[in-house]
Amino acid sequence: MSKDIVSENILSDDSENYASSFDKALMENKLVLKREKTTTCQINVGYLCNLSCRHCHLTAGPDRKENMTEKTAQQVIKYAQRYQFNTIDITGGAPEMNPNIEMLIENLTPLCSQIIIRSNLIAINKAEQTKLISTIKRNNVTIIASFPSINEVQTNSQRGDNIFQQSIETLKILNSLGYGDVKNSGLELNLVSNPTGAFMPSAQEQVEKRFRTILDNKWGIQFDNLYSFANVPLGRFKAWLKKTGNFDNYMEKLTGNFNPCAVQNLMCRNLVSIAWNGYLHDCDFNLANKLPLGGEKTHISEENALPRPGSLIATADHCFTCTAGTGFT
C-alpha cells in the first residue's frame, strides 16, 4: 500500500474509516496532522536498560535483546550525513548500555547543532562509564534525565528500589562537571518529570519551580529546564493500567484533556524516529506501537528516507497523550 493511499484512508470523510479516536478528534476540530520540515532525528538505540520502570512505553529492561548493531549505527551516521538535522536525540532503553554509543556521539555531533542523550541517571553512573561521561561532556551533549518525582517513595515505586538516592548522587556528579549551568558551562541538563501513577502531570512551570527549590535547598542540585509529561499508555505502563483497572479511566482523562491548540506544536511534525533496527517511525511512541513512518515500513538505508513536508503522520489512540494539555517534547 502506498503512503498516499494510507493517508487518504486516515483522512477519509467516511467515519467508518477513522483509523482511531484520535483521528476522529482531529476531524471534529477540523485539524489535519501533517509534517513540516524534519529538523530532529531521534535515534532509539535499543530496549536494553538496567531498570524496568513501570511507566516505560517500550517495556525496556535488562532482558531485552533488541540493541542497535554497529552496522545499523554506521547506517544511522550516513543517514544523518545525508539529511542534516538541527537536533539529534539519542534514546533507549538506556543508551549508555549500547556498545556503539560513543562512536555514535563522536560521529553525529559534528553533523548537528544540538545533540541530546536521554539518561535514566543510573546507567550513566557506573564505574565502566567514566570514558562515556567524558565523551558526553567533550561533545557538549545535552542530557535529558528522568526524574519523575521529588518524593523518594513515589520515584522508587515507579523506577525501583534506591533509584531516587542514586539519581541524586548522579545529579551531584553532573553538576560538578558543569552540567545544569548551561549559561556558564555550555553543558545543558534538563529533567523530565512523569506522574507516578494513573493521573495527569502537573503544570510544567509549577513543577519546575518546586523541583528547583527543593533540589537546591536539600541537595544543592541545579538544572537548566524541566519538562512535565504524561505517561503514554503503551508497553509496561499500559499493562499496569490494565492490571490495576485504571486503563479506561486513564484514556478518558487523556481524551478529555484533548487540546486542539497543542496539535500545531506536536513534536512528530518535525521529527523522525529511527528504531534500533534502522526502521523509521513518526515518533518513539509509534515505534513502541509498531506503527511505521506514515504507515509504510521504510529503512534508513533506502533512498528518499526522509518524510516530505505535507505528508501525513501515522496516528493511534496513544497520540492523545501528546495533545493532553500543552503537548510533548
Binding site: I150, V153, F199
Partner: peptide, 12 residues
Amino acid sequence: TQTCLEKGSNSG
C-alpha cells in the same frame, strides 16, 4: 486525591 497527585503531592 486525584488533584493532589496531579499537582505533585505524595501520599505522606
